[in-house]
């Protein structure tokens, strides 16, 4: 008897309405396009996420590792009912947000990974995925957790999320918080922006290719410098490092 094991391993996917793209202006005056990314584009995202595994600040390493696994799982049909949205500026990847549908009335937020910082890009991405859950998929509420203090401030505090501590979140089993439709409606005027339809030239540029970020988050100057400084009271290591950098810059 032959068994097609792949059919058993591969989750059955529920039909999910697509996300309608939108765009918004950032504080810089640049337009960012938010659109859904499907399976065939996932390798482009993986290339951009992988370097962040080594960024030991603001929990980029933890978040990147989990996002990488989620995207790979989606790409290889090992993740049920996941969706992925990308935020792009001039085609360049600026953020990735993803989540999944747990039931037809319940959504689950996975991650918000900003690859460009300082312009509320992550916040815009989070708002877009909540919009997808509540407005497009018709979920009554979305389970959310934060892995960084920045995320906690952005989601739990800005949206005034409700506690669902009796529900362990799929991310690490930690207590969940929830965004309900009512909370989302209250936040709409302040936190949710975007214009539709996206002008064709903007959308074409975004759809054409996901370009890697030109200014992604980078590791601290030297993650061990602070530790080493404890044994280096004259700060020689820090200064030497800087001088070497300056020398390198001059030679470049």
């Amino acid at each position: 008897m032959s068994v097609d094991l792949e059919k058993i391993l591969r989750p059955v996917e529920s039909p999910m309405k697509p996300y309608e793209p939108k765009y918004m202006m950032l504080a810089s005056g640049e337009a960012v396009v938010v659109r859904q990314v499907f399976r065939d584009e996932i390798p482009d995202l993986l290339k951009a996420v992988e370097p962040l595994l080594h960024v030991e600040r603001d929990y980029y390493d933890v978040v990147a590792a989990r996002v990488y696994a989620e995207l790979l799982g989606y790409y290889q049909y090992r993740f049920q009912d996941q969706y992925v949205l990308a935020l792009q500026v001039d085609g360049e990847l600026a953020a990735i947000v993803n989540g999944r549908q747990v039931t037809p009335t319940l959504g689950l937020s996975l991650h918000t990974l900003a690859l460009r910082r300082g312009l509320r890009i992550g916040a815009h991405g989070f708002a877009a995925k909540m919009e997808y859950h509540i407005d497009t998929l018709g979920h009554n509420e979305v389970l959310v957790v934060a892995e960084s203090p920045i995320g906690f401030r952005r989601w739990m505090i800005e949206y005034k999320l409700e506690k669902r501590f009796h529900i362990p979140h799929e991310l690490g089993g930690v207590p969940s918080w929830a965004l309900t439709k009512e909370l989302f409606d209250r936040a709409r005027s302040k936190l949710v922006v975007g214009r539709r339809p996206v002008p064709p030239d903007l959308l074409d540029k975004a759809m054409d290719k996901i370009l890697p970020p030109s200014d992604p988050p980078t590791p601290p100057l030297d993650p061990l410098a602070a530790t080493r400084a404890l044994y280096d009271p004259t700060a020689t290591a820090l200064v030497t490092q800087r001088w070497e950098m300056e020398k390198g810059a001059q030679n470049a």
Binding site: M24, M25, L26, A27, S28, G29, E30, R117, G118, L119, R120, H124, K190, L191, V192, V193, G194, R195
Partner: peptide, 22 residues
Amino acid sequence: HLQQEISMEGILDSPEAMTNNP
């Protein structure tokens, strides 16, 4: 510290300005 360009349109004049710059 801040190495991020901003514009009048982005922080004051665009429909998104109040969210970008609350």
